[in-house]
Write a protein that binds this DNA or RNA. Structure first.
Lengths: 206, 206
DNA sequence: GTTAAATTTGACTATATGGTTAAAGTGATT
DNA sequence: AATCACTTTAACCATATAGTCAAATTTAAC
């Protein structure tokens, strides 16, 4: 039952890394949590670095490959937008620890995430980020205004991921806000789609 | 010249903490950079923790108090929006290391930032985040649609800060993108204001 | 110019922690 | 039951690094 103990370790390591960060994580804590001792940890995963690599890879690959699969549909842009936002928010709210890893990465040069994204894109034979392609096409088709695809791409990701990344601050400052609650996530979907599609200027509404 | 050497140390510490993060930073490197030795560092700033606290406080207080001052104007919402985006992007692009500290904080419970924001708000006698107030009023005045102020607040911050936070990833994936360049910052301002105000839907444009 | 206080240093300590090792246990295969 | 590979452990090691300290040096006060 080698497979079993390895996944046990990976899960234990995952939870510790998410909670404490890479530097904060202690190998003996991980071992303890996995019900084994430190030497065994090094027997299965050569080093802390290597173990982290495995955990990180597993979590991120899982997340991104699912995401890339689900947003690569070719429809009219309004539907694309709705699908993108829904998929992104569902994914991230189901696995909020992904943002923890993202944040850790951003503080450490982001090499791993960049590699990972490049690998996935190569595997799926994309030579451009799908959102950017979708925006470009929508503009060409005249479905939406002449928007810079890169800025819209940045904006979409920002609108989706930010509440989860900044959760500790938001929940402290906004009374009663629960970012991970189903209510918030649903409201957020609508808010984003509405904002992006319609803006806030008054006239359009009546 | 005590004051002088203290600020010298703070600057050196600041640059090291920004580059290496708290855990990555080494006291002897900071000392070296400040042109003194380790013992002196502890003579002036009791401990690493304490030193970091000082640096963090200085940087963040500087940033936030400037920001809060400059966005607390009461005008029509279109002007408010333009001013907010301009001020935010100018501030953050001038001091990109602030995002590093933010990111560090997000990975460590965010207690310090929360305290700081609370302190500043108390000092300025705010009992609500100014953006939220501004949105609420604009809705009441009928200047903009009936938007949830909290979501718009979240969206605005997200749109502004995200490119700087995710800079390493964005610059890797988007050929030639230089987030800190004047051109990008200016383009970003326009993109945000335009998106928020008008959305992307086709009809309005002609 | 002597004394005292503040400042500065090199050398040291304590400790946390990632990693190693040698020996022992376990179980399948013959 | 002997062999052999795989698994597990307790005890140990090496090292990085925050923090200390007693002595030396500079500065200020009289």
């Amino acid at each position: 039952m080698t497979k079993d103990i390895e996944t046990t370790i990976l899960k234990a390591a995952s939870s510790v890394f998410v909670k404490e960060g890479y530097d904060g994580a202690r190998m003996n804590v991980i071992a303890e949590k996995a019900g084994i001792n430190k030497a065994l940890l090094h027997y299965y995963f050569r080093s802390k670095d290597h173990l982290f690599q495995m955990v990180f890879e597993r979590v991120m690959h899982d997340f991104f490959s699912g995401l890339f699969r689900d947003i690569s549909v070719d429809t009219d842009f309004r539907s694309y937008l709705e699908n993108f936002v829904t998929v992104y928010l569902n994914s991230i709210s189901k696995k909020p620890y992904v943002t923890r890893f993202m944040i850790w990465e951003l503080g450490h040069g982001s090499g791993k995430v960049n590699d990972l994204i490049n690998r996935i894109m190569k595997k799926w034979e994309m030579n451009e980020i799908p959102v950017i392609t979708a925006v470009r096409r929508a503009v060409e088709r005249g479905e939406i205004q002449d928007i810079d695809p890169i800025h819209l791409f940045i904006s979409l990701i920002a609108l989706c991921i930010f509440p989860f990344a900044a959760r500790p601050i938001l929940e402290n400052k906004v009374e009663g806000l629960k970012v991970l609650s189903k209510e918030f996530v649903e409201a957020r979907k609508e808010a984003i789609i509405d904002l992006v599609w319609n803006g806030i200027a008054r006239p359009r509404e009546v």
